[in-house]
């Protein structure tokens, strides 16, 4: 059933520019680093990251990827929920022989899947960029995959939150402003303690163990999803 819901959701987002954005985000992040490394090649490659070229590239990509994920997931959640809001069709969707739980988790899973595609594209793009920049083929796959997928897993609470907000509010200005605020706050999150959820996707914690941030993200993500679900199944829709 979940698969059929997901395929229905995938049908709904066709020709809505959503796939375009899913590709644009990674291309933008990798492209900006291409410009960054291209313009400052002598400085970055010759001096700063001379001993660990791939490590330097991956680090730079991640620095841009995490804030972009924060705002990207807010825009994505808004566009996905906006399909029903714009056509006033929540009643119609819920009148189908599907449960509200399935509809809500369907939207959440769609967001998750699309962002997973984006994250994978970032990893692939980084490999291409590194090879084009002449960093050789000794690609540290382990480091690269961790740098891309750990933040994705740690950011799950925010995917659940934005999905919840975007589905709940008809006026998308509110969820989107929360998303913008989240991105900006996350960039200042280093100043906060490890309890601060906006810090988790940066994988920085006192124990220096990225997996702690990932575990917190996944656990709290489930909590937020459950809270959203509990609200949505009781909510009155227009």
């Amino acid at each position: 059933m979940s698969l059929r819901i997901l395929s229905a959701e995938l049908l709904k987002i066709r020709r809505k520019f959503i796939w375009f954005l899913i590709f644009l985000g990674p291309i933008g992040v990798v492209g900006l680093q291409a410009v960054n490394f291209g313009l400052r090649y002598d400085y970055l490659v010759g001096k700063v990251y001379r001993d660990d070229l791939w490590g330097g590239l991956i680090e730079n990509v991640t620095i841009l990827m995490v804030p972009t994920l924060f705002i990207g997931l807010a825009i994505l959640a808004s566009m996905v929920a906006g399909i029903e809001h714009q056509t006033n069709s929540w009643k119609q969707t819920l009148a189908l022989p599907v449960t509200r739980t399935q509809v809500f988790t369907g939207k959440f899973l769609l967001n998750l899947l699309l962002l997973l595609v984006s994250t994978t594209l970032v990893a692939a793009g980084t490999i291409v960029l590194g090879i084009v920049l002449g960093f050789g083929t000794g690609i540290p796959y382990g480091v690269l995959l961790k740098a891309c997928y750990y933040p994705f897993l740690a950011i799950v609470p925010f995917i659940a939150l934005q999905n919840w907000l975007s589905v709940t509010f008809q006026n998308q200005a509110f969820p989107l402003t929360v998303g913008i605020a989240g991105m900006v706050v996350s960039m200042f999150s280093i100043r906060f303690g490890d309890w601060f959820p906006w810090k988790w996707p940066y994988l920085i914690n006192a124990a220096k163990e990225p997996l702690y941030s990932v575990a917190c993200g996944l656990a709290f993500g489930l909590v937020v999803l459950a809270a959203g679900l509990a609200h949505f199944v009781r909510k009155d829709v227009k």
Partner: peptide, 20 residues
């Protein structure tokens, strides 16, 4: 565009590079 998020996506595309 009638979508609320689409214009914002344009905005984000141009604003993210600010960091660099």
């Amino acid at each position: 565009w009638s979508s609320f998020a689409a214009p914002l996506a344009v905005n984000v595309v141009f604003t993210i590079p600010n960091m660099l």
